[in-house]
Design a protein around this nucleic acid. Structure first.
Length: 308
RNA sequence: CGCGGGGUAGAGCAGUUGGCAGCUCGCCAGGCCCAUAACCUGGAGGUCGUCGGUUCAAGUCCGACCCCCGCAA
């Protein structure tokens, strides 16, 4: 008899975990809860979350609640609980705070997959935070959810090394895969009562906030290594940028440079066939990939060819 | 009809009051050199996004449309 599961998730981080559960005979995903279709892109095309697409391909019922905290939402989920006797909720990058009375519905609680080694980097931008902070390693944590964000008892953790040139996007993809590989056995182990939840050491907790594009504006008074990490961490989301000539200049990739620059920090310029900026520590960062406002992404070489 | 930038050689860009289509990089050939992504000489490569209009003459002015991108969400 398969364990009945309701899956909460929305983003691309969620999809590998959902697929792992769907193809695992130990579980039966009886419903998927995801955010409503949202207008996306320049033309505001109404687009379903990727999780919804996968659920529909597998014929799993989908709920898309406008508001999760309403009585109506609660009643619908309680009805599902009464009908199906759901064992556990699995929450992976759902995108909304789930109120306690809903967390209390499933028989064995709610399991969350988080993209960091908790108690480090609690919050919404854990992948970016790990790179930006200069961590050597990160990983995924499978945990029981409680009232506080990313605060519950840990069921399992898996570590991976962060590559020296790895971007947030690359790490995001690796972690979502790692989460999907880890989740099924841990979930089964917990439901079979073979895993004992371990409390986190809350004194070591760090937090990261939800990022917006404005967070990607580079503060050039920081050190060159900090800025290099930020550029990597925030690629592709939310991206990093600076003002140049009154326009926005997105910075996709940087590398350290041996050059010295007479310009003050934050003034990009061409020097020795390189596009460089000096930083707060006096060192120089070479911009190797960029996107001027209104233009496509290009290499520094291409950019320089048209700007000498 | 949310605001804005753009489409010119393979890439990135310039192109003035309409008057021979240019620059940098790359590419090809040759030269120089112990050698080179360096340097020198030469060369190829264009339906100026599409369609229509104005004009003796349109990359340039007018109109419509297509496509790419930044902001916003």
């Amino acid at each position: 008899m398969a364990y009945k599961i309701v899956f909460f998730g929305t983003s691309d981080f969620s999809t590998p975990s959902l697929e792992a559960l769907l193809k695992d005979a130990r579980f039966e995903v009886v419903a998927v809860v995801t955010k409503p279709d949202a207008p996306i892109g320049r033309h505001q095309t109404l687009t379903p979350p990727p999780v919804k697409v996968i659920a529909q391909e597998h014929g799993v019922p989908v709920f898309q609640f406008e508001k999760i905290k309403t009585d109506e939402t609660y009643q619908i989920l309680r009805q599902t609980q009464d009908d199906k006797e759901v064992e556990a909720y699995v929450v992976v990058s759902y995108g909304k705070i789930i109120p306690q009375r809903i967390l209390d519905l499933p028989k064995r609680g709610c399991i969350n997959v988080h993209g960091s080694l908790l108690p480090l980097h609690r919050g919404a931008s854990c992948v970016q935070a790990a790179i930006a902070e200069g961590d050597q390693k990160t990983g995924v944590t499978v945990m029981l959810m409680d009232a506080e964000m990313d605060h519950g008892d840990v069921l399992a953790q898996k570590e991976i090394e962060i590559g020296p040139a790895e971007t947030g996007g690359e790490l995001h993809d690796r972690l979502s895969q790692l989460g999907a590989e880890t989740l099924p056995d841990v979930l089964a182990g917990y439901l079979d009562s073979n895993i004992t939840p371990q409390p986190q050491d809350h004194s070591l907790a760090t937090y990261c906030k939800l990022l917006t594009r404005d967070d990607g504006k580079i503060n050039w008074t920081k050190s060159s290594s900090e800025i290099e990490r930020l550029v990597r961490a925030y690629n592709p989301w939310p991206g990093t940028w600076t003002e140049w000539d009154g326009k926005r200049l997105k910075i996709l990739k940087t590398s350290s440079s041996d050059l010295t620059s007479p310009k003050s920090p934050g003034e990009p310029h061409i020097q020795d066939d390189s596009l460089v900026v000096s930083c707060g520590d006096g060192k120089v960062l070479e911009i190797s990939e960029l996107q001027p406002e209104g233009k496509r992404i290009m290499t520094a070489k291409e950019f320089i060819a048209g700007h000498r």
